[in-house]
Design a protein around this nucleic acid. Structure first.
Lengths: 209, 209
DNA sequence: ACCTGAACACCGTTCAAGT
DNA sequence: ACCTGAACACCGTTCAAGT
C-alpha cells in the first residue's frame, strides 16, 4: 500500500486540451496526433468523417484511437473543447497586443470562425446524444468570462457605449455565423466586422480640439 | 411504335399517398405494406429504424423496398407526405361532424399529434439533405389551406375572436409540441387543449336571455 | 502500458436469378 | 413487370497478438 495518491486514477477518456497526466511518451504523442488529425479532417470533410480516416491521418492504428477515445463522440467532444479553450485564451493575447477596440473586434472575428466551424460540428451535437453532455455548458462558462474584460476595457477607453451588453453581442454574432458561415465565410466575416464597427463611438480625448 | 401514351412513363419514386398509377396488383400491395410498416416502425423505433426491419415487417424482400423507394429517405418522405395529407383531410371530416369550435379544437389535437410525431422524424429532415426537398413546403401548402375554413367557421359562429390569427395559433401549437411532445404526449395534449380553450368566447345568441 | 490491424456486427444499397 | 435474398461496400467497435 503506497500511501500517496490514492484516488482519482481512472481518467479513461483522454484529457481535454492536451492533458499530460502521467502518460507514457508514446501515448501522449498518439493523443496529440489524433486530435490534430481530427481537427484537420473535421475541418475539411465535416463531422461525418470516418474514424478510419482520422486514425490513418494520425498515423496510428484503430485500437489506439479507441484506447484514448472510447467512442467516436469523445473525439468530437475533445476537439471542440480544445477549440473553445483556444478561442478563450486568444482573448487575453489580443488584449495584450492591441488597443481595446481593435482587440475586441479581432476577437469577434476569432469567435465568428469558431462558431462557423462549430456549426458543422454542432449539427451532430444537437442530435440529443447525452455523450455530448456539457459542451454547451463549457461554451458558455469559459467563453463568456474570457470576453468580458475585452468589453470592459473598450468601455473604459470610451470606445463603445457603456451599456453595451456583451451577451447580446455574442448572441448576435453567433446567430449571424450559424446561418451563413459555411456557405460564404468571407461574407460572414464582413458582416461581423460591420456589426462590431457599429458599436464604435468617437474617443473622448482625441476629438476635443 | 404504339402511338398512344408517349411521355411521362418514368415515375420512379413510388407515388405519395397511395397513388395507383397503372401498377400491377402485387406492386400496389407491396407499396401499401411498406408504407404501413414504415409508419409503424418509425412510430415505435424512431427514424433511425433499419430498412431491413421495415422490409421484414412489410413481408417483402429488400429489392422490393428499393424498387419503390430508391433511397431510405424516399420512404420517410412518402410516409410524412401521407401523414400530412391525412391530417389535412381530417379538417373537412371534423368540420362536418362537429360544431365549429369543437371541430377546431379536435383538429388542433390531431395537428399536435402530427407535429409531435413529426418531430421525431424531422430530426433527420433538418440534416440539410436535399433529398427531403419540399417537405416543409407541402407542410405549409396543404395544411394551412385545410385549417383556414375551421377558423372561419368558428369566427362566423362567434365562438372565437374575429381577429384570431390562424398562422399564429398553428405556430404556437407546433412549437408547443416540438419541445415536450415525445417526453409527455399527454401533457402536450393537455396544454394544447388549454391553449385552444383560451380562444373561446361566449356565443352571442345563447347568453342573451 | 501501449500499439497494431485483422475481424466482427451491422448498415444502406445492388444485382443475378427467379416467376 | 415484379419479387427475392445473397452479396457488396462501408461503417463503428473489439480483441488477440505483439513490443
Amino acid at each position: 500500500m503506497s500511501g500517496v495518491r490514492s484516488k482519482g486514477d481512472q481518467a479513461e477518456t483522454a484529457a481535454d486540451t492536451g492533458g499530460d497526466r502521467r502518460l507514457r511518451a508514446d501515448a501522449k504523442r498518439s493523443i496529440d496526433a489524433l486530435m490534430q488529425a481530427a481537427r484537420e479532417v473535421f475541418a475539411s470533410s465535416g463531422v461525418d468523417a470516418t474514424v478510419r480516416e482520422i486514425a490513418e491521418r494520425a498515423g496510428v492504428g484503430m485500437g489506439t484511437l479507441y484506447r484514448h477515445f472510447p467512442q467516436r463522440a469523445d473525439l468530437i467532444t475533445a476537439v471542440l473543447h480544445s477549440e473553445m479553450d483556444a478561442c478563450s485564451d486568444a482573448a487575453a493575447t489580443l488584449a495584450a497586443k492591441h488597443p481595446p477596440f481593435e482587440a475586441l473586434a479581432a476577437w469577434m472575428q476569432r469567435y465568428a470562425d469558431l462558431v462557423g466551424t462549430k456549426r458543422g460540428l454542432a449539427k451532430a451535437l444537437n442530435s440529443g446524444d447525452p455523450v455530448f453532455e456539457g459542451l454547451l455548458t463549457r461554451f458558455e462558462e469559459r467563453l463568456r468570462p474570457a470576453v468580458r474584460p475585452l468589453f470592459a476595457a473598450a468601455i473604459v477607453a470610451g470606445e463603445i457605449e457603456p451599456d453595451t451588453d456583451a451577451d447580446e453581442i455574442l448572441c448576435a454574432v453567433s446567430s449571424l455565423c450559424m446561418s451563413a458561415y459555411d456557405a460564404k465565410p468571407e461574407h460572414a466575416r464582413r458582416m461581423v466586422a460591420l456589426f462590431i464597427d457599429g458599436l464604435r463611438r468617437p474617443v473622448k480625448g482625441s476629438s476635443s480640439h
